[in-house]
Design a binder for these strands. Structure first.
Length: 310
DNA sequence: AAGTGTGACAACCGCCAGGGC
DNA sequence: CGCCCTGGCGGTTGTCACACT
C-alpha cells in the first residue's frame, strides 16, 4: 500500500542500491531536500518521498556516527530511557550522530536482554521480583541504578514519582525493611509517614525535599533541590504554574547531563567518607557542594532537565 | 553441503499532529 | 469547520549474514 505522496507512481521498495543512494545523495547535497514528496522525481528515483527521507535521515546524512555504540552511549540510553520510556527520537537527541531507529534497534536487540539478565524489567527498570517479594530480602549481583523514576507526563514537576530502588553488590550489606542494601554511597531517609521504603518510594514526589537520591559507580540520580518547587502541589492558577515552569526552564538551560560530569561527580563522592546512616537526614549541603563544581547543579535535577528537552 | 535458527540492521506501515486551503 | 498533504514517530516486519546442527 503506497502513501499519499507516491500512490500514483510506480515505486520501488526494499533495500536501497548504491546507485539509488548516489542519486539521492547527489540531489540533496546540491539542492537540499525541500519537500520530500518532490524529491523522488527531482532526483530521478522511483521511490516514495517518505522512503527517501528515511534513507537520508538513517543512512546517508553526513553527520551520522558509524560503528557500534560505546559503553558511555549505552549508559546514556538506559538512563534516559528510564525517564522517558520508548521515546526513541527524544533519546537519540542525547546521542549526537545516532538516529532514533538505531537507538531503538540497539535497545531491542541488546540492552533489553542485558537488563533482563540483570533482573530488571526493561520497561519500568524496576527489579523484576520487587513487588512479588516486597517482604523478603532482595539480593542481586549486578550493579544498577539505585532507584529509577518514571513519569506520566512531560511536565515532570508534578508527576515525577520514585518507583523503585536496587541494591548494590557489596559484602557489607545493610538491611532496611527487609531489603538488603549493599555498599550504599548515599541514602535517602524515609519520611516519618512512610511505613516502609516501598511506601516511601510510592509517596515520593518533588514536594518531598528532605529526601534524596543515591549514587553508585554507574548512575546518579537525585531528587529536586531544597528551596525550589515548594509550591508545586498547591499552585493555584495556570499563570503561576506557567511562570514557575518558565523559571525552571531558565535555570536548567545549558546544564545538560552528560557522562563526563556524572563520572566526575561520582569520583568526588567516592573520595569522601560518607558512611551509611539510615536515621540521618541527607546532607544537602554536601550534595550541593559536590554538584556545583561539576556544573550540574542549577537548582533543579537531571529529571527536570530531560523533561525540558521534550 | 544443506537446512535451520538467530541477531543485527534496514525499511516499511499506520497513526498522528500541524499547516494550508 | 473539514479535507488534504506532509513530516515525524514508534511498532513491526523484512533482509541478510553468520553460526550451528
Amino acid at each position: 500500500m503506497g502513501h499519499h505522496c507516491c500512490s500514483k507512481q510506480k515505486v520501488k521498495r526494499g533495500l536501497w542500491s548504491p546507485e539509488e543512494d548516489e542519486k539521492l545523495m547527489r540531489h540533496i547535497t546540491s539542492h537540499g531536500h525541500g519537500c520530500w514528496s518532490a524529491v523522488p522525481k527531482l532526483a530521478g528515483l522511483q521511490r516514495c518521498g517518505k522512503s527517501c527521507r528515511l534513507r537520508w535521515i538513517n543512512y546517508l546524512r553526513p553527520d551520522l556516527k558509524r560503528g557500534s555504540f560505546t559503553e558511555q552511549e549505552e549508559r546514556t540510553i538506559i538512563d534516559v530511557h528510564r525517564i522517558l520510556g520508548n521515546r526513541w527520537a527524544q533519546i537519540a537527541k542525547h546521542l549526537p550522530g545516532r538516529t532514533d531507529n538505531e537507538v531503538k534497534n540497539f535497545w531491542n536487540s541488546c540492552i533489553k536482554k542485558k537488563l533482563i539478565a540483570q533482573g530488571l524489567d526493561p520497561n519500568t527498570h524496576n527489579l523484576l521480583s520487587l513487588h512479588k517479594n516486597a517482604n523478603n530480602a532482595c539480593n542481586i549481583t549486578t550493579a544498577a541504578s539505585v532507584f529509577s523514576l518514571s513519569t506520566t507526563s512531560s511536565t515532570l514537576t508534578s508527576h515525577t514519582k520514585l518507583t523503585s530502588f536496587t541494591p548494590l553488590p557489596h559484602e557489607n550489606a545493610t538491611k532496611v525493611d527487609g531489603f538488603e542494601f549493599k555498599n550504599p554511597k548515599m541514602f535517602w531517609t524515609p519520611t516519618q509517614n512512610s511505613e516502609s521504603l516501598i511506601d516511601f518510594a510510592n509517596e515520593f514526589t518533588p514536594m518531598n525535599h528532605s529526601n534524596f537520591g543515591v549514587v553508585n559507580q554507574e548512575n546518579i540520580m537525585w531528587g529536586p533541590s531544597a528551596g525550589m518547587d515548594q509550591n508545586v502541589g498547591t499552585i493555584a492558577s495556570q499563570e503561576m504554574e506557567l511562570e514557575e515552569e518558565a523559571q525552571q526552564k531558565k535555570r536548567f538551560e545549558g546544564n545538560l547531563m552528560n557522562n563526563n560530569n556524572v563520572n566526575e561527580l561520582t569520583s568526588m563522592i567516592e573520595g569522601m567518607d560518607h558512611s551509611f546512616d539510615a536515621d540521618a537526614n541527607f546532607d544537602f549541603d554536601f550534595i550541593e557542594a559536590a554538584l556545583v563544581p561539576c556544573g550540574m547543579y542549577a537548582g533543579g535535577n537531571i529529571i527536570d532537565q530531560l523533561a525540558w528537552d521534550c
